[in-house]
Nucleic acid binder design. Sequence first.
DNA 1: CGGTGAGGTTAATGATGACTAACATCGGGA
DNA 2: TCCCGATGTTAGTCATCATTAACCTCACCG
Lengths: 199, 199
Amino acid sequence: MRGVTTAQPLTRGRGSRRAEILEAAAALFAARGFHGTSIEDIGGAVGTSGPALYRHFSGKEALLAEMLLDVSERLHTSAANRVTEAPDAEHALDALLTGQIEFALSHPALITVHDRELGNVPEPARRQIRRLQRLYVEEWVTVLSELYPGCPPPRLRAATHAVFGLLNSTPHSAGELDPEAMAGLLRSMARAALARAQS
Amino acid sequence: MRGVTTAQPLTRGRGSRRAEILEAAAALFAARGFHGTSIEDIGGAVGTSGPALYRHFSGKEALLAEMLLDVSERLHTSAANRVTEAPDAEHALDALLTGQIEFALSHPALITVHDRELGNVPEPARRQIRRLQRLYVEEWVTVLSELYPGCPPPRLRAATHAVFGLLNSTPHSAGELDPEAMAGLLRSMARAALARAQS
DNA sequence: CGGTGAGGTTAATGATGACTAACATCGGGA
DNA sequence: TCCCGATGTTAGTCATCATTAACCTCACCG
């Protein structure tokens, strides 16, 4: 029984394993939390047993770090691009909303983990994630400042966080509405909410 | 060194210790998560060492259960009362908003734990908490149905969850604005967002 | 073929942590 | 005054878990 049943890598696509692990881990972290999920759980979810993960990540925290870094990078660069390409602030805001809603609807687990587990990321990476998050928020605040001049930035920042809360509620109300309708509802609610930040 | 330094209960108010523990635990759970917080941590936060907690709660999960049960009860009964006393749906909605905003602003840790850690509550209690949460949501949906007839309940439910997300964003944007301004901003954004649910 | 590297496997190992046991202390009745 | 209940204390106990060690195996390249 020693090393007899080994298992089949069977010509897997390059790096697909890492991605598969990250995806499984995201789902588990979202459902049970970082500390509530064991390495064995994650391994099990991808069909290998526990320690196999160390062939792909240096540890559990590193795995989380990579996951969150990737999310905050995607959010931020997507936002930056959209804003740059928009003809005016009005369209920029629409584009930001679209980006966040698309992401939240298609990756609910990542969204959940992203705003729950930052505290478990070890220091070198944590700072960078925070930085990207801050930049992402500032992307919104900048657009909103242009749209509602005269509204103090702290208020816009608070409003932005509130809208994130609204948009990221998706994982909690999963299944109530189909994605199309949900996207429309969220967009419309968010726009209306933001319009109230100016007063 | 055996049992020499015992410590002083010193005529504490009745049951105040339980409350003190619950409060400390809420702060720790909010900051580090249920599994990220040890019994020793909680004990330390109230000036006793670890196992002393078992004099007040039967275990860590029981502590969490009591905490969440209390929160969902407070939210639900407060909402039910407010709605009953309101002259019409318009005022009822205002009262619901006021209640949720007051609670979220004054107990950010409880709000955070409340929508993160339900999964760690053991079964008998979990069902009851879920039930109260459902009733709380239905309180909102009922009022909204009256206000926006013709809007399908699933949509109203999704909108309600979205608004909870918006209002509960408070813990994430702590300190940006003073509580007064924050309350006003949240209320105004929430109302505007809800108004969009009808269309 | 021969060996090498990627990716798995099962057994330690060492911490940490929930919970229990055995034992104090003290304030407040009887 | 003496006992008891409420609360603490410290030292186990037993699981669980991250991480490491030591070993396999297979695809592929020369």
